[in-house]
Nucleic acid binder design. Structure first.
Lengths: 127, 127
DNA sequence: CGGTATCCCTAATGATACTG
DNA sequence: CAGTATCATTAGGGATACCG
């Protein structure tokens, strides 16, 4: 990415694209769903069970968003009862690579972050 | 979120850490601020001007969050008028690497995403 | 099963005013 | 300049009920 432009151009740089992607990926459930689907196609209810705590409504909305961005493919089987499967598209699969890189960073630095939070809270909290 | 139930769930994996990090990084303004500070320390108002559209309130909150996580260092110069500088910590700098990787992915695939969105909207919008 | 529609509450955010 | 405080508006998201 090019971050060598002037500060006042920030709104016109690739940062916006990163922001857009992160806005999608950063949604509370998106990353969990993407990582789940990375191990294979799943049905709606399977995802719902796997991602503990997500409401039906939010799962639907989240999957629609991922589908809209071309990250997830939705396949409807016209049977009774209905069967709908979700799987990562090639684009969605390629996204898992940088996401895993970020995940590695998170795993490697979560201790530092937690320590920083504790230190910050300890410094500011003074009842 | 509680995903610590079944073994096959997304529970104690790195996904949660990724989620935590992405929750911070995915905040609308965080990434823009981090990338801006990647090119050097900035004062409060400089950041405000550079990150077009952010309110004073949100900039303050966002910077506090980044500071709390140990990603940004805040330095106050006791002068009149006040001067406060923000800069990335080594931890914050290290975060830019995977973020840039994600940014590269975004830049390389933004066209596909836009196309997917257009196709999806064209398919679903039929008034 | 896999949704959609509705209600409703809360958290998030902008706008504005004030301060060391 | 760099905030903090307050108010008002809105968006996010849960609970519930209903549908193909």
């Amino acid at each position: 990415m090019d971050v060598t432009k002037e500060p006042h151009d920030l709104e016109n740089t690739d940062c916006q694209k990163v922001s857009q992607v992160l806005a999608r990926v950063g949604e509370k459930w998106s990353i969990l769903i993407i990582m789940l689907l990375n191990s294979g196609p799943r049905r709606f209810t399977e995802i719902r069970r796997a991602v503990n705590g997500i409401s039906q409504r939010m799962l639907t909305l989240c999957l629609r968003g991922l589908e809209r961005d071309g990250l997830v493919k939705r396949t409807v089987y016209s049977v009774m009862p209905p069967r709908v499967e979700y799987e990562l598209t090639p684009l969605g699969q390629s996204l898992t690579e940088p996401v895993i890189a970020l995940g590695t960073w998170a795993r490697d630095h979560i201790k530092e972050i937690d320590a920083a939070r504790a230190a910050f809270d300890g410094t500011t909290d003074s009842p």
